[in-house]
């Protein structure tokens, strides 16, 4: 699984299959502060990501 982090760096893991929520928490984020795209499409925290997926994590930063 390719994971693209909010700072645009990426990493590979074999963590899947796993729920988005579990993955995000593992990476040290609270699900409330990020949204997640799987292969370019937004998915919910209870969706499952697999090792063949590309997962992008976007931080909801506050810009006013």
């Amino acid at each position: 699984m390719k994971i693209i982090l909010p700072d645009k760096t990426s990493r590979e893991t074999k963590a899947g299959p796993v729920t988005v929520e579990a993955l995000v928490r593992d990476l040290g984020f609270d699900p409330i502060e990020v949204i997640v795209a799987r292969n370019g499409t937004l998915v919910t925290e209870d969706a499952v990501v697999e090792n063949t997926d590309e997962v992008r994590i976007i931080r909801i930063a506050h810009g006013g």
């Binding site: 299959p17 499409t41 937004l42 998915v43 919910t44 925290e45 209870d46 969706a47 499952v48 697999e50």
Partner: peptide, 18 residues
């Protein structure tokens, strides 16, 4: 039971928000 893509409560399309 985790499903790959949870479905919309209104139309059963792929859910983007929970």
């Amino acid at each position: 039971v985790p499903v790959k893509t949870p479905r919309c409560d209104c139309c059963s399309g792929p859910a983007v928000f929970h």
